[in-house]
């Protein structure tokens, strides 16, 4: 089967790749672009470990085809930190121990960064429902929610 040529933008960099028409965006990121930060926990859009942004919208990259990335902008966990520093969410996640094994962390960070861009002052309930599509089996979510709430407060204070 012939492969499809795709030109897209990932974390601000223009990239080109060839992919099978059946290949998911997640597989393209991991296997063709070397960006293994997004994880496959289920492959069926249930766990959120593969969360990325597509033109600023939160999506499961396992439910998107690589070919659909043509002309779009993809954001992954690898693009959250700036050249100089970690994003405030990343710092708070470490400080609060909002991760244990860390496999869900990339997806949760992409999802929460996306939340705070849309809603800088979420309630605890809003954070919990926004993250309901990101499974974490280690933490019971307590420290994740606290880290997100504290980051939001800090970012509001700084802006």
């Amino acid at each position: 089967m012939s492969q499809i040529h795709v030109t897209t933008t990932v974390n601000g960099d223009e990239v080109e790749f060839l992919c099978d028409p059946r290949e998911t965006m997640l597989d393209v990121l991991r296997d063709r672009l070397g960006l293994t930060g997004a994880k496959e926990g289920c492959g069926t859009g249930d766990c959120g470990a593969c969360s990325v942004t597509l033109d600023g919208r939160l999506v499961c990259s396992c439910l998107m085809l690589g070919a659909e990335a043509e002309g779009r902008e993809i954001g992954t966990v690898e693009g959250i930190a700036t050249d100089e520093d970690l994003h405030p969410l990343q710092k708070k996640f470490i400080e609060y121990a909002a991760l244990q094994c860390g496999i869900c962390t990339p997806g949760i960070l992409v999802a929460t960064k996306n939340l705070l861009e849309k809603n800088p002052d979420p309630t605890e309930t809003e954070v919990r429902y926004w993250l309901a599509g990101n499974l974490c089996r280690c933490t019971g979510y307590d420290k994740i929610i606290r880290a997100v709430m504290d980051t939001a407060a800090e970012m509001r204070g700084a802006s």
Binding site: L35, T36, G37, A81, L86, I94, L99
Partner: peptide, 20 residues
């Protein structure tokens, strides 16, 4: 309660898991 040594790897996507 110091920060974990693998923290930065795990919040930046650098940590290498089984499938990576």
């Amino acid at each position: 309660r110091p920060n974990r040594p693998d923290g930065i790897d795990k919040v930046t996507g650098r940590a290498r898991f089984g499938a990576d």
